[in-house]
């Protein structure tokens, strides 16, 4: 198993882009298909945004990314120590013109598994992408 970590300092909004680059680079290093890596990175961005908006309420704080590469899957864990509640998981799309509610949807649809965990004052979102991939259907669902 290959393991990599990145600590994003300061919880500034720009760190989401750093998370994007790190995730894609780490996925490349562990041999995940580029299209699957792109979907996983989109989900990671949303998890980081949730940490910034809901965990830290845009106040300073660190976000830790950890990537574990296994034979059949790549798992990214996004952890913060903020005090806010995480965004509620969502699989169904919001109203067509609703301005909010798509972050959780993106995580659910871009990943094969999404798991939320709260332990010892830390909140984590665990995003799993299978290497064989469940490519997204045109209707946004999983085959």
């Amino acid at each position: 198993m290959q393991h990599e970590e990145l600590v994003l300092l300061g919880a500034q909004a720009d760190i989401a882009l750093e998370a994007l680059r790190w995730t894609e680079d780490a996925c490349h290093r562990c041999g995940l298909d580029a299209a699957l890596a792109g979907e996983l990175a989109a989900a990671v961005i949303e998890a980081v945004n949730n940490a910034l908006e809901h965990g830290y309420r845009l106040a300073p704080g660190n976000v830790i990314l950890a990537l574990d590469s296994l034979s059949d899957r790549v798992v990214v864990t996004v952890t913060d120590s903020g005090t806010g509640m995480p965004a509620a998981p969502r699989r169904e799309p919001p109203e067509p013109l609703a301005e909010r509610g798509r972050g959780s949807l993106i995580m659910q649809r871009a990943c094969d598994e999404v798991h939320h965990d709260i332990r010892d004052g830390f909140q984590s979102v665990v995003l799993t992408k299978l290497r064989r991939g469940l490519t997204t259907r045109p209707d946004g669902g999983k085959p």
Binding site: E39, A42, I106
Partner: peptide, 8 residues
């Protein structure tokens, strides 16, 4: 475009 389609 992929994200647009993913979120419909």
């Amino acid at each position: 475009r992929a994200l647009i389609e993913l979120t419909r």
